[in-house]
Amino acid sequence: MSLLDELVGDCASRTWILAHLDYPHKDWCLFWPFALNQGGYANVGGKGLLVSRIMCEHRNGPAPADKPDAAHECGNGHEGCVNPWHLVWKSRGDNLRDIPKHGRRPKRYKVTPQQVDEIRALKGRMRPRDIAEIYGITDNNVHQILKGKIWKQERSDLRIFTEEEVRLIRTTSWQEKSAKQFAKELGASEYQVYRVRQGLSYKWIDCPSLPYEKQKSKAQLAAEALALTRQMLGSQE
């Protein structure tokens, strides 16, 4: 049984597919006019069958065992292209290696515990698709993290900052308040404070950080205090 045979009934999507199986234009993308999945690919039916697989099978025959992916030579599969002339069967590895060639960033599928906390802090404040783009993972990864299906711990020992706290950390100089003081005051680690200050975390908060400044050592601070004291005493003479 072919993939097309899995679609039953006289639905509009099946009718459209039948009308475009022998699409004549090789140079132009053929975009799916119906709903796309979260990754931007055309799917149909209750099981989420990819239309590109139907088109690729019609054009190239059934998928070989070692080449299960319907790969888009145009690089526009994530935009909904289903042109059968643009599709070939490839191995998963070859398909993934094509991503940079099409000017797209490959998904990483891995996040750190700190990033997991940040993703959960974004729940209800940003679309999962936008979160996925920020962290280089899939929409499905984001949904699984938010639902606790992966990284199942209820919370880590990392502090979740509010927008006001992030803005305060980024706009306060180390001379005014050190990372250690921030950490103690906010119940966080110094490492977390450094990441927030340098814009390595909470990137979605539009608040520019102060230029990088290395915290002064106790000896440096003592020397500055001594110099200031001498200057004050000299002005009194």
Rank of each mutant, 00 (worst) to 15 (best):
K147E: 07
R230P: 06
A42E: 00
S52N: 08
K90Y: 05
A121R: 15
S2L: 09
L221N: 13
A132Q: 06
L4F: 04
V193I: 06
A19G: 09
I131M: 05
D206H: 09
Q198K: 14
Q38E: 12
K67R: 15
P33R: 07
E185H: 12
G199E: 02
W32N: 00
Y212A: 08
C11R: 14
Y194K: 12
H143S: 11
T112N: 09
L221H: 11
A222P: 09
A71K: 09
A121L: 14
R125D: 01
K101Y: 00
Q175I: 12
G199I: 01
D10H: 12
S189R: 12
M1K: 13
T162K: 08
E224S: 14
L200F: 14
D27P: 10
K67V: 05
I205T: 05
W151G: 01
C74Q: 04
R159H: 06
L18P: 00
W85N: 08
G9S: 02
W174V: 14
L226W: 12
T229Y: 14
A223L: 14
D98G: 15
R159V: 00
K203S: 07
Q192K: 06
H72Q: 08
K110S: 11
A65Q: 11
A223M: 11
L49M: 13
F31Y: 13
A223Q: 15
T138S: 15
S13M: 07
D69A: 12
P113G: 00
Y41I: 05
V8R: 14
R127L: 15
R129P: 03
P84F: 03
G199C: 05
A35M: 05
A19C: 08
L228N: 10
